[in-house]
């Protein structure tokens, strides 16, 4: 049985593992997603500003706005 070890008991969460772990999982995922989204947008706009300072276009080869979605 899993519960025979201390770590197994921790994972089992007194029989409520299927609720406790997804709750922590969904919290982690959503917070990570909102942070990653902010980080990617900042990197994209930083790069576009640098490009603009360098060659004055601020756009990629297709002429798209790189201020937002450039990963």
């Amino acid at each position: 049985m899993m519960e025979e070890t201390a770590f197994g008991a921790f994972l089992a969460m007194g029989g409520y593992a299927e609720f406790v772990w997804p709750a922590y999982g969904v919290t982690g995922l959503v917070l990570l997603a909102i942070w990653l989204d902010g980080y990617r947008r900042r990197r994209a706009v930083e790069r576009a500003l640098q490009r603009l300072a360098r060659d004055g276009s601020g756009q990629d080869a297709q002429g798209r706005d790189t201020g937002r979605n450039d990963a």
């Binding site: 902010g38 947008r41 201020g67």
Partner: peptide, 22 residues
């Protein structure tokens, strides 16, 4: 997260202004 996003939005505004000027 708020400060990070606000900083990004300010930079995006600057990018728009610079493009417009150019």
């Amino acid at each position: 997260a708020l400060l990070e996003r606000m900083r990004t939005l300010l930079m995006e505004a600057r990018l728009r202004a610079q493009r417009q000027a150019r």
